[in-house]
Design a binder for these strands. Sequence first.
DNA 1: TTGAAAGCGCTACCAC
DNA 2: GTGGTAGCGCTTTCAA
Lengths: 343, 343
Amino acid sequence: MDTEDTRRATIGDVAAHAGVSVTTVSHVLSGRRPVSTATQQKVRRSIDLLGFRPNEIARSMRSQRTHTAALVVPNIAHVVYPFVARGITEELRPLGYQISIYDTDDDPVVKADVLQVITDRRVDGVILFGFDITSTDAAVLTGASIPFVNGGLNAEVDGPYDCVRSDQRAGLEITTRHLIERFGGPLAFVGGLPGDGPADLRESGFRRAMAAAGLPVDERLVARVPYSWEGGREALAQLLAKDLPIRAVVCANDLIAIGGMAMARERGLRVPEDLAFTGYDNIEAGTMVVPTLTSVESFLDEQGRSCARLLIDRLGRGYGGPARHVSIDTALVVRASSGGTGS
Amino acid sequence: MDTEDTRRATIGDVAAHAGVSVTTVSHVLSGRRPVSTATQQKVRRSIDLLGFRPNEIARSMRSQRTHTAALVVPNIAHVVYPFVARGITEELRPLGYQISIYDTDDDPVVKADVLQVITDRRVDGVILFGFDITSTDAAVLTGASIPFVNGGLNAEVDGPYDCVRSDQRAGLEITTRHLIERFGGPLAFVGGLPGDGPADLRESGFRRAMAAAGLPVDERLVARVPYSWEGGREALAQLLAKDLPIRAVVCANDLIAIGGMAMARERGLRVPEDLAFTGYDNIEAGTMVVPTLTSVESFLDEQGRSCARLLIDRLGRGYGGPARHVSIDTALVVRASSGGTGS
DNA sequence: TTGAAAGCGCTACCAC
DNA sequence: GTGGTAGCGCTTTCAA
């Protein structure tokens, strides 16, 4: 009773059952060589009867291809990566690739380990998203001749491999210019802590827009705090305590902006009538707070898709040319916090 | 120049280079049999020199184990799944398992396909999370003798396989009871659309708590809307239009609650002084709105961990007993919207 | 139109 | 302490 056949049927079982050779079974499966209709039917019947499905491991062993792409991210629970993953999947699944997502737990050691494991498993290609990758990381992949793409960069430049970035500096220039046009000044800036991901890039966007408008940056109105709601509250508390005139606050992300708005309103200021705000990232919460938050959309799914396309080019006997660097534009979403319609 | 050795070294290359047999190389790798220190060193040197790494595909082929678990979810971009994924990873990675995440794009056809692909790849185990799985789905897995766990159920009961659920009914009972204790009544309920995931379960929690407190449910104060911010606004507009006394609103999720609060405040009501609110899911936005939202925490990572543990039991020559059904308790998080401290 | 057999890279059973 | 070799399940020459 207990010893019923639990082992999955192999191609050999099918061949025996149908009374043909494994070669023939293989060929009715692949269609790579003509098989008489009679044998085809016999074989297909046996396949159905035995519930045969080819073993992909064995196939990979022969073909040296796994039809798998790996997506490596620092922390899948961070809001941005699931959207990237969706974009990648949409692009690669139709081509018959499976996407395996690997989470490095924000730990460079785990990242290095994951990269090794990935190469040991002979994935066909890799998309790294959200890392500063080291030359060692790159060497592991190239050493195994596995094509890869680096996405979601925060640095201005990167190495000699395909890269996809969102133009964060330009994104912050847009919000800054938007506030200048609507309100003139004075403008405050609340950035992330230096070295914390895109902080420098975003701050430089603010400064560039100010310079372009011929406005000086009052350094007393520049704060740098953690990328969090609490950070935003803290920053606004500091800024308001200085008792300097401020008309609008450019924030480096939405959490800061939402926290900042909360503090401003606690202090009796009306948003945007007394003080306007902009954020960055266009998170869902920005559409639910009062007032709704003006922000910058980065099109994460498109970034993912773009990574996937660059990778696809290099899969199989594809593109083997020099590295390509793609930049995805951002878009301003105007809402109530900067005097939009409040949509 | 272009034809430099791009092929990765095999165990045979190492053996040749070290002047020993492949058997010996295999054994210094596995440690499954004593090897003299001298040969060990020779072999290790060759391994380093050649940059040899064992081919996991070949290993899997022999051992029939892939050291991979698959996590299948309807839509990785939905807030809940990344947290589940983290919990699973934390539990399984230390045991040497890789987690591959598969997204079925909310499509049962894709789900069926993914399940087949997964079995063809001979993953060691599968965690399905967030599905109503069909008997066919289950049959595919059991037919391939791949152990699996079904997590995140919305139904009251499920099939003869390991299951993990969050007690959503109890979760809604908690919020309802909380509001009854604080405010007495009358209470309104805003649920999701019937058949939309956990809607029925959550509504039954509300009704049960009301019954337990000896309070009748006024059906005029029960609304059912989409699980969204707009749904919440709409529901509150309807409810308030009826001009019946309401002291508090039990909402089936946070989006509804946040939208509902926004509408209530637009209509000049103070929250919680005039009208109190509770949500469900404890999303981040609930900590950023004003007032902050009382909600129910489901411990998604713990649900994931629990799935992982059930699966681990069945991996290898492990547990082979009857199906186990685990329920994870929820917890009430009291915030300002129901008169909490406003933390 | 079909089959035999080599071999993908590895592990483990034999033998010595 | 060490080596030869069968074989995991498949694809693909080569031969008929």
